[in-house]
Lab assay of single mutants.
Amino acid sequence: GPMASDKRPRTAFTAEQLQRLKAEFQTNRYLTEQRRQSLAQELGLNESQIKIWFQNKRAK
Score class of each variant (00 low, 15 high):
Glu47His: 04
Gln37Pro: 01
Asn28Trp: 04
Tyr30Pro: 04
Leu31Glu: 05
Thr11Pro: 14
Lys57Leu: 06
Lys22Glu: 12
Gly44Ala: 06
Ala23Thr: 09
Glu24Gly: 01
Ala15Pro: 10
Leu21Ala: 00
Glu24Tyr: 03
Ser5Glu: 15
Phe54Ser: 00
Arg20Met: 05
Tyr30Asp: 06
Lys57His: 08
Ile50Pro: 00
Phe25Thr: 01
Trp53Ser: 00
Lys60Phe: 04
Lys60Thr: 08
Phe13Trp: 08
Ala4Glu: 15
Phe54Trp: 12
Lys60Leu: 09
Gln17Arg: 02
Ala15Leu: 09
Gln37Met: 10
Pro9Lys: 08
Gln41Ala: 12
Asn28Gly: 05
Arg58Trp: 07
Lys57Tyr: 12
Thr32Phe: 02
Leu18Cys: 07
Ser48Trp: 14
Ala59Asn: 11
Gln55Cys: 10
Ala12Met: 09
Leu45Ser: 03
Phe54Val: 01
Trp53His: 01
Asn56Gly: 06
Tyr30Ala: 05
Thr27Asp: 09
Trp53Cys: 02
Arg58Glu: 05
Lys7Thr: 14
Thr14Asp: 04
Lys22Cys: 12
Gly44Tyr: 04
Ser38Lys: 12
Ser38Ala: 14
Tyr30Trp: 12
Ala15Glu: 08
Ala15Asn: 08
Glu42Met: 05
Leu31Trp: 04
Glu33Asn: 13
Asn46Trp: 06
Gln34Asp: 10
Leu39Cys: 01
Thr14Gly: 03
Arg8Ala: 15
Pro2Met: 06
Trp53Glu: 00
Glu47Tyr: 03
Thr14His: 02
Ala59Leu: 11
Ala4Val: 08
Gln34Lys: 12
Asn28Lys: 05
Ser5Ile: 03
Ala15Met: 09
Asn28Ala: 05
Lys51Arg: 11
Met3Pro: 15
Ser48Phe: 13
Lys60Ser: 09
Gln41Tyr: 10
Leu45Asp: 00
Glu47Thr: 09
Lys51His: 12
Lys51Gly: 09
Ala40Phe: 02
Ser38Thr: 13
Gly44Trp: 03
Gly44Leu: 05
Ser38Val: 14
Gly1Ile: 05
Gln19Ala: 13
Ile50Val: 08
Pro2Tyr: 03
Gln49Leu: 12
Glu42Phe: 03
Ala59Thr: 08
Leu21Asn: 00
Asn56Arg: 15
Arg20Ser: 05
Leu43Glu: 00
Arg36Met: 11
Glu24Leu: 04
Phe54Asn: 01
Leu18Ile: 10
Gln49Lys: 06
Phe25Asp: 00
Phe54Leu: 02
Leu45Trp: 01
Ile52Phe: 09
Glu47Trp: 03
Leu45Met: 08
Gln17Phe: 01
Arg36Asp: 02
Ala4Asn: 12
Met3Gly: 15
Gln37Ile: 11
Gln49Val: 14
Arg29Gly: 05
Leu43Tyr: 02
Gln55Thr: 09
Met3His: 15
Leu39Ile: 06
Lys7Tyr: 06
Lys51Trp: 14
